[in-house]
C-alpha cells in the first residue's frame, strides 16, 4: 500500500486535488471547431466534384453557419484565457511544437475565408443581391473564376482544423487519457460527422439528404472503429493508461461515455439514418440532434476525464 499526502497544506484552486484548469469553454470550442470543419470540408468537396447544383444546402446554405460558430468558438476560447489582454501574443510567433499555436493561426485563416465563401454565394442565395462597391464585384468575379482552387484551400484548412481539435489534447503526455495519436483522426471524423448532421438538418432536398446520410453512416462507422481502437490501446497500455481507462469502465464517466456518446450519439442515430434510407419515415431533425449531442458530450467527457488522469509516482 502506498499513500501520498501534501503535508505543507497545498490546495491550489483548480489544480488540487485533481486538475480542472479547462472548463466548459474548451470542449465547446473543440465541438464548434470540428463542426465548422465538417461543414466547410463537404462544401468544398462537392464544389471540387462539380456538384454545386445537386447539393445547394451543402455548398451554399450550411456554410453560413460555419463563420458564426467559429466566432462563438473563438469567443469561448478568449473567455477561457486568464491573461486576456495579452491574447495578441499568439500572433507574434509561430511555434510548431505547440498545437495551440498553429491552431490559432489556422483559425485566423479559416474564419475570414469562411466568411468570404458565404459572401461569394450571396448573389445566388439572395435574388437581386448586388455588391455596392466595384472592388467587391471584382473580387466576386475572381472568386467565381477560381472557385475550385478556393474549395481545395478550404478543404485542406478544414482537415487541419478538424485534426487540430484532437491533437490539441493528444500533445499533452502528462495526461495519459489524451496522450494517444488516435485522438487526431477520431476528433476529425467526429467533427466531420457533426458537420454532415448539421448540413442534413439544413437541407430541404430529399436526394441531397440521402447522399449526406450515406456519407455520415460511413463516418459514424469509422468513428466507432476508432473508439474501439482507442480503448484497445488503453487496455494494452502501461499502468497510467489502464488507470485512465478505468474512468470509462466502472469509473465516474462510464454512463456519460457509453450511454450518451456511444449509444445515443452514434449507434442510435446511425440506426435511424439506416431506417430512413430503407424508406421508413424518421423526423428529419432527430438524427442530427442526436449526433450533435453525442459530439458535444464526447468532447466534454474527454476534456473532463483527461484532466483527472495523471502519471503515478
Amino acid at each position: 500500500m502506498k499513500e501520498e499526502l501534501f503535508v505543507s497544506g497545498r490546495n491550489i484552486p483548480n489544480i488540487d486535488p485533481y486538475l480542472n484548469i479547462w472548463h466548459w469553454q474548451i470542449p465547446l470550442y473543440l465541438f464548434l471547431g470540428g463542426l465548422a470543419a465538417g461543414i466547410i470540408f463537404f462544401a468544398g468537396y462537392f464544389v471540387v466534384r462539380g456538384k454545386e447544383k445537386e447539393m445547394p444546402a451543402t455548398v451554399k446554405w450550411a456554410p453560413i453557419i460555419a463563420p458564426i460558430i467559429l466566432v462563438i468558438g473563438l469567443i469561448a476560447l478568449f473567455w477561457d484565457l486568464k491573461h486576456k489582454l495579452y491574447f495578441w501574443q499568439l500572433y507574434t510567433t509561430i511555434r510548431f511544437t505547440s498545437p495551440m499555436s498553429w491552431g490559432a493561426w489556422t483559425l485566423m485563416a479559416i474564419t475570414p475565408f469562411s466568411i468570404i465563401w458565404v459572401a461569394s454565394y450571396m448573389k445566388e442565395m439572395v435574388p437581386g443581391w448586388n455588391w455596392k462597391y466595384k472592388i467587391l464585384i471584382g473580387y466576386d468575379i475572381l472568386l467565381n473564376k477560381y472557385r475550385k482552387s478556393f474549395a481545395w484551400v478550404m478543404m485542406i484548412l478544414a482537415i487541419i482544423l478538424g485534426v487540430y481539435t484532437g491533437i490539441l489534447l493528444s500533445a499533452f503526455n502528462a495526461r495519459p487519457l489524451w496522450n494517444t495519436s488516435i485522438l487526431g483522426p477520431l476528433f476529425l471524423v467526429s467533427g466531420f460527422s457533426t458537420g454532415l448532421a448539421t448540413t442534413m438538418w439544413v437541407s430541404k432536398d430529399e436526394k441531397e439528404r440521402k447522399i449526406l446520410s450515406r456519407i455520415d453512416l460511413v463516418f459514424i462507422a469509422v468513428e466507432l472503429f476508432l473508439i474501439v481502437h482507442l480503448f484497445m490501446g488503453f487496455m494494452a497500455g502501461t499502468a497510467v493508461k489502464t488507470e485512465a481507462f478505468q474512468l470509462f469502465l466502472g469509473g465516474p464517466f462510464t454512463v456519460s461515455f457509453w450511454v450518451f456518446v456511444v449509444l445515443l450519439g452514434l449507434i442510435f442515430p446511425a440506426t435511424l439514418e439506416t431506417l430512413e434510407l430503407w424508406g421508413y419515415h424518421v423526423p428529419k431533425w432527430i438524427p442530427p440532434v442526436l449526433i450533435l449531442f453525442g459530439g458535444l458530450m464526447f468532447r466534454f467527457v474527454m476534456v473532463e476525464a483527461g484532466q483527472i488522469t495523471r502519471f503515478l509516482y
Binding site: I15, L81, Y86
Partner: peptide, 9 residues
C-alpha cells in the same frame, strides 16, 4: 496569455 496549456502539460 493564461491559456493553461503548460499546466495541462
Amino acid at each position: 496569455i493564461g491559456c493553461g496549456a503548460c499546466i495541462e502539460s
